[in-house]
Amino acid sequence: MATVRQLQITFDCAEPERVARFWCEALGYVVPPPPEGFGSWEEYDRSLPTEKRGAWFACSDPTGAGPRLFFQRVPEGKTAKNRVHLDVRAGTGLVGAERLATLQAECERLVALGAVCVRVLLADEENESCIVMQDVEGNEFCLD
């Protein structure tokens, strides 16, 4: 039997802290405390060499149930569709109009935080409704 390991999801991005703080708001995640000996993340960041400042940021599920999200600065911008994306399960267990209304309300909340609504996929014979979105740096995710 395989050993169960913890999962971390890593995002390449231009502004790690900005993207991390969006996901904190989107998912109810929190920023972990700064490293020992530092009163804040800003203080820690100032202790680093200039080229390493703001190079990464992280957030985690306060319940410990969800994966840690890690954001690392990369020099290149996003150029293509994500090959992996997050599904934010806002409508679990809901169907039809109730599900769509719940997803649309969550979409509006996330748009107010800087996300972009790409398209609404309405329910058909096989699938329930979902909403394709992008975070503050264009990373695709779905509300489902």
Rank of each mutant, 00 (worst) to 15 (best):
A20W: 04
R21S: 10
F22W: 06
W23G: 01
W23N: 03
A26G: 00
A26N: 01
L27E: 05
L27V: 07
G28R: 06
V30H: 09
P32S: 03
G39N: 03
G39S: 05
W41N: 07
E42W: 12
E43V: 04
Y44H: 14
P49C: 14
T50P: 08
A58T: 04
S60Q: 12
D61R: 01
G64I: 10
A65T: 08
A65P: 02
R68E: 09
L69K: 02
P75D: 13
P75A: 13
P75T: 09
K78L: 02
T79Y: 06
K81S: 09
N82V: 01
N82F: 00
R83F: 01
V84T: 05
H85Q: 10
H85V: 00
H85W: 05
L86W: 01
D87W: 02
V88G: 00
R89D: 08
G91M: 05
G91L: 07
T92V: 15
T92P: 03
L94V: 07
V95K: 15
A97H: 13
A101I: 11
L103G: 03
Q104T: 13
Q104R: 15
A105G: 09
E106D: 12
C107Q: 05
R109Q: 07
L110E: 04
L110S: 06
V111N: 09
A112M: 12
L113A: 07
L113K: 11
G114Y: 04
C117D: 12
L121Q: 10
E126N: 11
E128G: 11
V132L: 14
V132K: 11
V132A: 09
E137P: 08
